[in-house]
Amino acid sequence: MENLDTASDYDALGIVPKPASRAIEATALARKPLRLGLVQFAPRKGDVQANLRSIGHALEALADDCEPFPDVIVFPETSLSGYFVEGGVRDVAFSAEEALDRLARVAREACPKKETFDIVLGFYEAEHGKHYNSALYATLGARVRLHHVHRKLFLPTYGVFDEERFVSRGRAIDSFETAYGRAAILICEDACHSLATTVAALRGASIIFIPSASPGRGLEDGEPANVRMWRDIMRVVAAEHGVYMAYAGLVGFEGGKGFTGGSRLVGPFGDLRAEAPFSEAAILRVDVSMADVASARAALPMLGDLESNLSEIAAMLAKLAGPRAPSA
């Protein structure tokens, strides 16, 4: 018989495990590999049904794979609609609950034998008459549960981007509990601001999921310049905070703008563990140990040092963010 490690395994057999201390549970969880699947695909613009089918096909591919099904599957930003929708955001936005309901149905059809798994997925969210560029974290399968919704704070509105014209800004970065530790979500440009990652790490996140849609530009040297930029940012920021960073990017062209996939996993030492190609649909599978987070933070205790200086740093930031003194 296989080892039974998770509550869901026991639930399926109707066995109640002997309660363990929180410390022992945490150690066991840290030792168990976390299996990640990072999906990059090209949505059909504005065609939610077609995109749900594509998501289902990705789940089927993972179910058919010889490796165990991932614990967490990460999909890109705006996976249900495509990214550049302009005023069409009202046609393709859902509440988080409705998006979850649709995803749960897809999951039941695509992998009916799978007990539970978690998903991170970007979508345009409608809530109380406002629209957001959001990503949800949910458990799918036998027990469907919405854990967290992150609304993108940094809405690029320059060059090819025009987000703030069509969606509202999110206002918070938070972490949330998962079966393998605390996690956070940052969407695309959110993660380009190291301060956002700092907040997520200070809030306790050991892994940060980054659904993204990055249009390629700068084709001078081997790969699009934005692919290189993302890799550099993730390596530096992950090492600074001792966190895992899991990035899933759109591919395909939208109105001449080609998205650059490049889904990747960077470890808490700033080490690039795996990376998908930049121009084709793919599922990148990678297993990680959450115990590496403690090792990385022990070797390079930047986050602890920051916590020691946090009150002074926070005071400086509060002064910068406060009302400006009248100029002389």
């Binding site: 090209a42 613009k45 084709l219 001078e220 395909g252 062209f253 001449g256 121009s279």
Partner: peptide
């Protein structure tokens, strides 16, 4: 104005396939 000509070629071939066939 230097470009990576092979990268640009692959990018534009993908663009043409995407715009004509997929879309």
């Amino acid at each position: 104005l230097r470009i990576d000509a092979d990268l640009v070629k692959r990018w534009l071939v993908n663009f043409l396939r995407d715009e004509l066939i997929r879309r």
